[in-house]
């Protein structure tokens, strides 16, 4: 027989609700100090890497603003122009990430990706609701037997972080690649 958790869920007691004002206050917190604001920004950028490294795509998308825009760009000296290799809004990104596990599962077995990040600069908008963040990125791939780690790409993140309602979320990300040959097999997984 099927049961549901909601059927057995205990209602919150009045006293528990009364103990919540501290939490409510936190939600409305507006990063009044530079330290807290910067910590939120840095943690957000780092978590986008950690969630993608873990192939935890849903958690990655949870870090993204509803108006999220994602691009992977590079300069082609052969064509002497900028080119865009991936361009998605949040829905497009979700569709892509949802379908990837259905693709060549051996690809997932082969790749253990690790995104190494250094946040270089953080600049805030006049009203402090946006942060422009530039980070250095190196993406490594380690063979499943742990024997060889290969540098897949050197790149930069050019991110815009929304600072709204006491929360930092990724509004846009441009992955600007220096390395255009992505290892032996390329990558289905966005950086």
């Amino acid at each position: 027989m099927a049961t549901t958790k909601t059927a057995t869920k205990k209602p919150r007691s009045k006293s528990a609700a009364a103990a919540k004002p501290t939490l409510k206050k936190k939600v409305e917190f507006r990063f009044e100090t530079l330290f807290e604001r910067e910590k939120a920004v840095r943690e957000l950028i780092a978590r986008t890497c950690l969630t993608m490294d873990a192939y935890d795509f849903n958690s990655y998308l949870d870090l993204c603003h509803e108006d999220f825009q994602y691009t992977i760009t590079t300069y082609s000296p052969e064509l002497r122009k900028d080119i865009i290799w991936l361009d998605h809004d949040k829905m497009g990104m979700k569709t892509l990430l949802d379908v990837l596990p259905l693709h060549a599962s051996d690809h997932f077995l082969r790749l253990t990706m690790s995104r190494h990040l250094s946040v270089y600069t953080i600049d805030y908008s006049a009203n402090d609701t946006r942060a422009s963040v530039v980070s250095g990125l190196q993406v490594f791939n380690t063979a499943k037997d742990g024997g060889v780690t290969e540098l897949l790409s050197v790149a930069k993140y050019f991110d815009t972080v929304a600072l709204e309602g006491g929360k930092a979320s990724l509004l846009s990300r441009e992955v600007r690649l220096d390395t255009r040959m992505l290892g032996e097999t390329g990558s289905l997984i966005p950086f």
Binding site: L86, H103, T185, S187, I189
Partner: peptide, 13 residues
């Protein structure tokens, strides 16, 4: 067919 596309990486594997 791009470097992050669905096909080429699989063919290369």
């Amino acid at each position: 067919w791009g470097p992050f596309g669905r096909n080429l990486s699989e063919d290369q594997i």
